[in-house]
Design a protein around this nucleic acid. Structure first.
Lengths: 145, 145
DNA sequence: CTTATACTTTAGAATGATTATAAATTAATT
DNA sequence: AATTAATTTATAATCATTCTAAAGTATAAG
């Protein structure tokens, strides 16, 4: 059951980002920021979730616009994977990931599970913007008969 | 000045991979494995280098085929960056990278410049295939007036 | 050295993700 | 309620990549 409070919160979030609170954006907010747990998604997955949850269509262009807006404002983080599609993470704090190639799935790594002892220093006139670990996973039985 | 020895070496490399040594593949080998220093490239960049160096055209499809062949055989490594194009690295040893976003350029990090103290353990039935650090760089003056 | 076979290259079409466009709609302002 | 400015939308355009089928080339066999 959705409470008015949720809507208002999303509306305020959007306004604070300088984005008009449209029906579509509020719904995307409900999907992305409605639950406590953070999660990872592609634009296509977000589109599917939207269709199912609200039983209504939305233009992909709108999803791209909104996601880009959130990213620019720091409410979403794009994640680095090979291949040719982008993943987004609702957890914008600095953290690392497992990538399960078999299942094409990202898993957050808690920061206290990793300890980076020494880092290289940045080249002249550059500074470090972020440090991210990608740990690729494979199934244990990969070299069995 | 190219010596016959170089060609023969590339031909042997190709044969050992089960790839027929065609004109195109030998030339790609010259580009990729001819110099001592390793380097990073996209398929398009490789195409440009090929055109300039040999003053002849090559089909993009051939470049894709060859690069994929080398990758599958472990002679090239695909590198993970956001956006929608793939980078390849002639250094296939496990190592980390700086990514200079401004210049869209990858820089190798020597392994002894990084020390990872503790790693999270892999989820059940999974094991760690690779661990790679991506350190994003920005210009020092990014928040000056 | 010629022929047969399998592998390669090629141009161009097909695909899939993303971005651009321009008209219709909606939110905000007056 | 009317004006304006931003947004949504469907669709076209773009870009990297993969697919395809025909033409070309390397290898193996005679």
């Amino acid at each position: 059951m959705l409470k008015m409070k949720d809507f208002e919160e999303h509306i305020n979030t959007l306004r604070s980002l300088g984005l008009r609170p449209t029906k579509q954006r509020i719904k995307i907010c409900e999907i992305l920021f409605g639950k406590k747990a953070t999660f990872h998604f592609t634009v296509n997955q977000l589109n599917e979730i939207y269709k199912k949850k609200f039983k209504s269509k939305i233009s992909l262009a709108t999803i791209y616009n909104t996601v880009h807006g959130f990213k620019k404002k720091g409410y979403l983080k794009e994640i680095t994977l090979d291949g040719n599609k982008s993943y987004y993470d609702t957890n914008t704090l600095n953290h690392h990931h497992f990538y399960d190639e078999g299942e094409d799935k990202l898993i957050d790594i808690e920061n206290f599970d990793v300890s980076l002892n020494s880092l290289p220093k940045a080249p002249l006139n550059k500074s470090i913007k972020s440090v991210e670990l990608m740990i690729r996973l494979e199934n244990n039985n990969h070299n069995q008969k």
